[in-house]
Nucleic acid binder design. Structure first.
Ligand SMILES: [Mn+2]
Ligand SMILES: [Mn+2]
Ligand SMILES: [Zn+2]
Ligand SMILES: [Zn+2]
Lengths: 149, 149
DNA sequence: TCAATAGTTTAGAACAATTCCAAACTACTT
DNA sequence: AAGTAGTTTGGAATTGTTCTAAACTATTGA
């Protein structure tokens, strides 16, 4: 019956992901379902295309890298992901789409969320005329001090 | 005598750039002198490698793209420039090395300085233990509203 | 249930930005 | 003037990403 419960939970998760894809008008294909689960089952994450691709292969999900890119962009357009730019050369996709900021561990390149709640930026000049603020991004770059300087 | 004054000013600028390179231990080569003047004579700027390369060619300075990259990185390491990351795919180099933030015009990709003076970020959690804040970056993404949405 | 259709996936080519390489060159020292 | 270490360069290589066109598949509605 442990196995039975397992199956029920499985089915639930599956249904949730399926509904999510449907709700944004994307066909629930094998690849998208699998990727959605890697991305959204579990806590918030910051992934690169390559990372997600490796994870998929490790989990025995056959997906091409082109599909990874397609999917990440479609999910982003659909508001399921957001892109974070902290490093030229690599695009990070963030499963946390709520307004929030980031710690960046410079050495490892790892990102960590800072809840927006409480954080305020004051003293900013008004947006230049003819423009609207689409987002304020705060990135706190951290140097790890210890072994390797 | 207008020509004479011109020459004096030229000499001054040259001397300044030369001293600047010497002070950071970089040999004042033809290429570095020319690039330093494109970068530092005049107001603060945000340039990409390609942009600087075109400017150099337009000004009849023969420099390879490899040298542009070498120089930009050497200047950055020497603290004469700083790198700003706002767009994956392209590296921007900023001649303003003082602490400051940026407006980013999303459509054009153009950056505009926001003096740090006055701007405060409050409510941030402490830096994770074992780390030090190396820089706080605030980027305000702007959408230009008008002709093209 | 079975086309027809529109949307999706894929391998591989193409692309853009950047880095690497090893040979030629040049600034500085002696 | 010669020696040395630092610099420049064209071109090849690498990296991350996008494009392409052909094969495949989910959806629809007859
Ligand atoms: Mn992108
Ligand atoms: Mn760089
Ligand atoms: Zn995040
Ligand atoms: Zn700036």
């Amino acid at each position: 019956m442990a196995a039975y419960i397992q199956t029920v939970m499985e089915t639930r998760r599956y249904a949730r992901v399926l509904a999510r894809l449907r709700s944004v008008g994307l066909r629930p294909t094998r690849q998208r379902l699998a990727l959605a689960r890697l991305l959204f089952d579990g806590g918030n994450r910051h992934v690169t295309a390559e990372q997600l691709h490796s994870e998929a292969l490790e989990a025995n999900i056959r997906v091409s890298l082109a599909t990874i890119y397609n999917t990440l962009h479609q999910f982003t357009r659909a508001g399921l992901l957001r892109e974070v730019v902290v490093d030229h050369g690599r695009a990070y996709f963030d499963t946390n789409t709520k307004e929030h900021h980031h710690f960046l561990f410079e050495d490892s390149g790892r990102l960590q969320d800072i809840p927006s709640k409480g954080v305020t930026v004051t003293g900013l000049p008004a947006a230049p005329s003819g423009t609207t603020v689409s987002r304020i991004e705060v990135i706190i770059r951290l140097r790890e001090h210890g072994s390797s300087q």
